[in-house]
């Protein structure tokens, strides 16, 4: 009898052995209201008043992405998107718009205050956005935001797509796949090469990624087909996604033109601070101007 129970338990374990950690890999923080500068959560840095954005240049809006209401903030003038250059910021896995607001403000000062429009948004399940996060959702929600920009008159030759950490996946994806717009510039900060390399780097062994995850993220392969020039930031002390192999593999696989800023002493989340706010802004501005 005990043998039967044991075998039954074993067969049951096999039959139900479908645990996947994918849904847990996303780390969304919900909020009912964006507080922006009033956000009192933990941040990597806070900018001084010289980086403040006038209230009339902050536009909170929502759109539908596959039936889910997702939220974004456009910094700039929505009536001039048809003639402006816009930076679409794809944020990382932690937090929501409030957490990345200081970064969005930095981008709104590239080349001078409000020289470029900046669009920051929350993927499904993050911040005020409805739904649950998933890999498909981050691509589709980014696509929906690109479509919103296109509907406002933006063309791909005036679109900069910026991805940070997890956000490097949709940024790279839409730089190498057909979408509403083809970005003219691609900026990646602390990218990971692929889900597979993440597994293998962590495990030390050449394990198939399917052993633990269904994620298909593959920046290192997608970027081979990127049509936009690349600016890549990566901290040398990034212990979450190490510069080597992640950042370097992505950079090496880009066909060019490309430039890398490997920031000595920076970790996964403090590249702008360690590089220096002004230097960071200048790198982005010079990249945009020179391509």
């Amino acid at each position: 009898m005990r043998k039967i129970i044991f075998l039954g338990a074993l067969i049951g374990l096999i039959a139900f052995s479908c645990a996947r950690l994918d849904s847990f890999l996303f780390n969304p923080y919900k909020t009912d209201e964006y507080k922006l500068d009033a956000y009192d959560g933990k941040l990597q840095f806070r900018l001084g008043p010289e980086f403040d954005i006038p209230q009339d240049k902050i536009h909170l809006f929502s759109i539908s992405s596959q039936g889910y209401k997702i939220w974004g903030i456009y910094i700039g003038d929505t009536t001039t998107i048809s003639s402006d250059t816009v930076i679409l910021y794809c944020h990382g896995n932690t937090g929501h718009i409030d957490y990345y607001w200081q970064r969005a403000k930095l981008l709104a000062h590239v080349g001078g205050k409000l020289r470029y429009g900046v669009l920051i948004f929350d993927y499904r399940g993050y911040g005020k956005s409805e739904g649950e996060p998933s890999e498909e959702a981050i691509y589709e929600d980014t696509k929906a935001m690109m479509q919103w920009l296109k509907d406002k008159g933006l063309t791909g030759d005036r679109l900069v797509i910026y991805g940070y950490s997890m956000g490097t996946a949709p940024a790279t994806y839409w730089s190498s796949h057909d979408g509403p717009l083809t970005p003219r510039w691609l900026i990646l900060e602390a990218p990971f090469a692929s889900a597979e390399l993440m597994v293998q780097d962590g495990a030390y062994f050449v394990l198939p990624k399917q052993y633990v995850t269904d994620l298909e993220i593959n920046n290192a392969e997608w970027i081979k087909n990127a049509k936009a020039p690349l600016l890549l930031f990566h901290g040398t002390e990034d212990k979450l996604l190490a510069l080597d192999p992640h950042g370097k593999t992505v950079f090496d696989n880009h066909p060019g033109p490309k430039q890398a800023v490997f920031v000595e002493g920076a970790t996964h989340s403090d590249v702008p601070v360690i590089l220096g706010i002004e230097a960071y802004i200048s790198e982005i501005y010079n990249f945009i101007k020179s391509h």
Partner: peptide, 17 residues
């Protein structure tokens, strides 16, 4: 629980040796 914690579990789970 952050991404690093989650991945720690799954990576540790496949540290075969």
């Amino acid at each position: 629980m952050n991404l690093k914690d989650i991945i720690a579990v799954l990576m540790g789970g496949i540290f075969l040796s």
